[in-house]
Design a protein around this nucleic acid. Structure first.
Lengths: 191, 191
DNA sequence: TTAAAACATGTAAATATAAACATGTTTAAA
DNA sequence: TTTAAACATGTTTATATTTACATGTTTTAA
């Protein structure tokens, strides 16, 4: 497995992290493929995205591999659902993954950053509008994340019940706030 | 093209950004596939990664599409090189991409963050070692980035000649520095 | 002088991800 | 009551990315 491990080395390739996200989501409660798909629009969508066309086949693979099992449920007259849950093996696999080191930095793949790389001069007329656009984008993101903190973690109990989630939300708010501050400084520099 | 554009929506899919990186690198000077491959180990490797098996076919596609052309060079007796350069069409395409809005936030896909999501309790014994590991990783990264700033941008002239690159290096240093500060605070909280 | 490292360019296979195709049921609101 | 939105589960196709396979030359250091 080729990896860049020198400082500054960054890894991009995925070694099927989605399977662990699914195991992790199922560890919280039994869910259908549809439920999992929606989770990527809410919660986890802040950090990862996947569509149902990736999720349904993966659920089949995980079940074949013995990490999850399903129970057939019927809603109304005949709407079939498959509710998946972790097997002990799946739970062990999830915990092994969490406990395993995460020694790789992630490449950011930010379009704006990439474009900026090819802006050679501080006088480039494209620079100011690019910064202004990102400023809007990241200010909106800060607001969005703060609103989420309010709704998802209104009480101290809510924080204690999903502490890791709380931490990454806090982290994301700080990261975005600093991003905005940096953009503001650049906007000021480029008058 | 499906995109999540609500605030907090994040995009993961790539619409062949690598082609623009190649165009951008070639806009600086004519280069071979090998040169471009190495560029991902140095410069641009901080932000994107690609291996030669992705680069060589893409160079062929870009040439077929009329964005680049190549000249055959011989080193020594018979070592054949293809030195690629932008066509006016390729340059136009690059500039169009840079000028185009970048309205999407990028998902971070950080393993540590992902694992943190599944840590439910502040008392989870895995939390402290996870934070300690990341602290090491990001402290090293800060050092690495600062060293790069020293070597790549020793003078004000160097900064003026590659201003965008300088900006993103500054940005990366700030981001990593704040990341370290955040991790330190979490480490302190979890005594 | 010889061997290793760096230079140089490809292809093939496997997997990951995204977008589109495909079908049907249930619920809630108009 | 009818229709749109949400629920529910798949497959297919295209593209992106990684890893491995494959081959040969030139330079540098031992």
């Amino acid at each position: 497995m080729k990896q860049t491990n020198e400082p500054g080395g960054v890894i991009i390739g995925q070694r099927n992290r989605l399977q662990y996200i699914i195991l992790g989501l199922l560890s919280q409660r039994a869910q259908t493929g549809y439920d999992l798909t929606r989770a990527f629009d809410h919660e986890i969508g802040e950090f990862w995205q996947a569509s149902h066309s990736q999720i349904y086949p993966l659920l089949q693979r995980l079940e074949t591999g013995g990490d999850i099992t399903h129970e057939d449920l019927i809603t109304g007259e005949k709407l079939a659902k498959k509710q998946y849950e972790l097997t002990p093996q799946g739970r062990t696999k999830l915990n092994a993954w969490i406990s395993e080191p995460s020694p790789e930095l992630t490449a950011t793949k930010d379009d704006f950053i990439l474009k900026l790389y090819f802006i050679k001069s501080a006088d480039d007329p494209r620079l100011a509008p690019m910064i202004a656009e990102q400023l809007q984008l990241h200010r909106d993101q800060v607001e969005h994340l703060q609103a989420r903190r309010q709704t998802v973690f209104p009480t101290d109990d809510a924080i204690q019940a999903a502490y890791g989630h709380y931490l990454i939300l806090e982290h994301a708010i700080e990261r975005e706030t600093h991003y905005v501050a940096w953009l503001e400084r650049q906007a000021a520099t480029n008058h």
